[in-house]
Protein backbone atom coordinates (compact mmCIF):
# COMPACT_ATOMS: atom_id res chain seq x y z
CA UNK A 1 0.00 0.00 0.00
CA UNK A 2 1.12 3.51 -0.75
CA UNK A 3 0.29 6.95 0.55
CA UNK A 4 0.62 10.31 -1.16
CA UNK A 5 3.14 12.82 0.12
CA UNK A 6 1.12 15.54 1.80
CA UNK A 7 2.73 18.16 -0.45
CA UNK A 8 1.46 16.60 -3.68
CA UNK A 9 -1.47 18.39 -5.25
CA UNK A 10 -4.96 17.09 -4.73
CA UNK A 11 -6.27 14.06 -6.50
CA UNK A 12 -9.09 15.38 -8.64
CA UNK A 13 -9.76 12.68 -11.24
CA UNK A 14 -12.57 10.36 -10.26
CA UNK A 15 -12.42 6.70 -11.21
CA UNK A 16 -13.74 3.36 -10.03
CA UNK A 17 -11.65 0.45 -8.87
CA UNK A 18 -13.66 -2.78 -8.73
CA UNK A 19 -16.75 -0.65 -8.45
CA UNK A 20 -15.45 1.40 -5.54
CA UNK A 21 -15.11 5.16 -6.14
CA UNK A 22 -11.60 6.60 -5.82
CA UNK A 23 -9.68 9.66 -6.88
CA UNK A 24 -6.37 10.05 -8.66
CA UNK A 25 -4.06 12.80 -9.73
CA UNK A 26 -4.00 14.09 -13.30
CA UNK A 27 -0.87 12.83 -15.05
CA UNK A 28 -0.48 9.63 -13.11
CA UNK A 29 -0.69 6.09 -14.44
CA UNK A 30 -3.53 3.74 -13.68
CA UNK A 31 -1.10 1.61 -11.65
CA UNK A 32 -0.05 4.57 -9.50
CA UNK A 33 -3.67 5.53 -8.93
CA UNK A 34 -4.46 1.95 -7.92
CA UNK A 35 -1.57 1.80 -5.47
CA UNK A 36 -2.63 5.11 -3.96
CA UNK A 37 -6.19 3.81 -3.69
CA UNK A 38 -4.98 0.94 -1.52
CA UNK A 39 -4.99 -1.83 -4.13
CA UNK A 40 -2.64 -4.65 -3.12
CA UNK A 41 -3.53 -7.38 -5.65
CA UNK A 42 -4.53 -6.52 -9.20
CA UNK A 43 -5.06 -9.94 -10.75
CA UNK A 44 -4.72 -13.69 -10.48
CA UNK A 45 -2.66 -15.57 -13.03
CA UNK A 46 -4.23 -17.63 -15.83
CA UNK A 47 -2.07 -20.65 -15.04
CA UNK A 48 -1.88 -21.17 -11.29
CA UNK A 49 -4.38 -18.60 -10.04
CA UNK A 50 -1.58 -16.85 -8.14
CA UNK A 51 -2.12 -13.33 -6.82
CA UNK A 52 -0.04 -10.66 -8.52
CA UNK A 53 0.48 -6.92 -8.19
CA UNK A 54 2.39 -4.16 -9.97
CA UNK A 55 6.07 -5.09 -9.78
CA UNK A 56 8.29 -2.90 -12.00
CA UNK A 57 6.09 0.13 -12.82
CA UNK A 58 8.07 0.67 -16.01
CA UNK A 59 6.35 -1.55 -18.54
CA UNK A 60 8.64 -4.57 -18.57
CA UNK A 61 7.11 -7.12 -16.16
CA UNK A 62 3.47 -7.27 -17.32
CA UNK A 63 2.28 -8.01 -13.78
CA UNK A 64 -0.03 -4.97 -13.49
CA UNK A 65 -2.51 -6.21 -16.12
CA UNK A 66 -6.05 -5.03 -15.36
CA UNK A 67 -9.34 -4.52 -17.15
CA UNK A 68 -9.92 -0.89 -18.08
CA UNK A 69 -13.32 0.19 -19.39
CA UNK A 70 -14.12 -3.40 -20.30
CA UNK A 71 -10.86 -4.19 -22.13
CA UNK A 72 -8.71 -6.81 -20.42
CA UNK A 73 -4.95 -7.26 -20.01
CA UNK A 74 -4.03 -3.59 -20.13
CA UNK A 75 -0.68 -2.50 -18.71
CA UNK A 76 -1.76 -0.27 -15.86
CA UNK A 77 1.68 1.28 -15.38
CA UNK A 78 1.77 2.65 -18.94
CA UNK A 79 -1.79 3.93 -19.25
CA UNK A 80 -2.59 7.44 -18.02
CA UNK A 81 -5.52 7.71 -15.64
CA UNK A 82 -8.49 9.59 -17.08
CA UNK A 83 -11.70 10.89 -15.58
CA UNK A 84 -14.39 8.27 -15.09
CA UNK A 85 -12.26 5.20 -15.81
CA UNK A 86 -13.72 1.87 -14.76
CA UNK A 87 -10.78 -0.22 -13.56
CA UNK A 88 -11.20 -3.82 -12.56
CA UNK A 89 -8.84 -6.41 -11.21
CA UNK A 90 -8.67 -9.61 -13.25
CA UNK A 91 -9.38 -13.18 -12.31
CA UNK A 92 -7.40 -15.55 -14.50
CA UNK A 93 -7.24 -15.31 -18.28
CA UNK A 94 -8.82 -12.44 -20.15
CA UNK A 95 -12.39 -13.23 -21.15
CA UNK A 96 -13.10 -12.07 -24.70
CA UNK A 97 -16.75 -13.12 -24.44
CA UNK A 98 -17.46 -10.30 -22.01
CA UNK A 99 -15.60 -7.62 -23.97
CA UNK A 100 -16.90 -5.13 -26.48
CA UNK A 101 -15.66 -6.07 -29.97
CA UNK A 102 -13.17 -3.49 -31.16
CA UNK A 103 -13.46 -2.00 -34.62
CA UNK A 104 -12.51 -4.59 -37.24
CA UNK A 105 -9.77 -3.79 -39.71
CA UNK A 106 -10.58 -2.28 -43.10
Amino acid sequence: MFRRLPESDTATLRFKIDGRPATGRAGESVAAAMLAAGVVTCRTTPIGGQKRAPYCLMGVCFECLVTIDGIGNRQACLIPLTEGMDIRSQDGARDMAGEPVTEAAP
Partner: peptide
Protein backbone atom coordinates in the same frame (compact mmCIF):
# COMPACT_ATOMS: atom_id res chain seq x y z
CA UNK B 1 1.72 -8.85 -3.94
CA UNK B 2 3.64 -6.48 -1.69
CA UNK B 3 6.96 -7.37 -3.28
CA UNK B 4 8.17 -4.97 -5.93
CA UNK B 5 11.43 -3.69 -7.28
CA UNK B 6 13.23 -0.82 -5.57
CA UNK B 7 13.15 0.91 -8.93
CA UNK B 8 9.37 0.66 -8.95
CA UNK B 9 9.17 2.35 -5.55
CA UNK B 10 11.48 5.04 -6.86
CA UNK B 11 9.29 5.60 -9.91
CA UNK B 12 6.21 5.83 -7.67
CA UNK B 13 8.00 8.48 -5.64
CA UNK B 14 9.49 10.47 -8.53
CA UNK B 15 6.52 10.42 -10.86
CA UNK B 16 3.66 10.25 -8.38
CA UNK B 17 4.85 11.38 -4.93
CA UNK B 18 3.79 8.00 -3.58
CA UNK B 19 5.54 6.45 -0.58
CA UNK B 20 5.08 2.87 0.57
Amino acid sequence: PGVMTAGAAQIALKANALVP
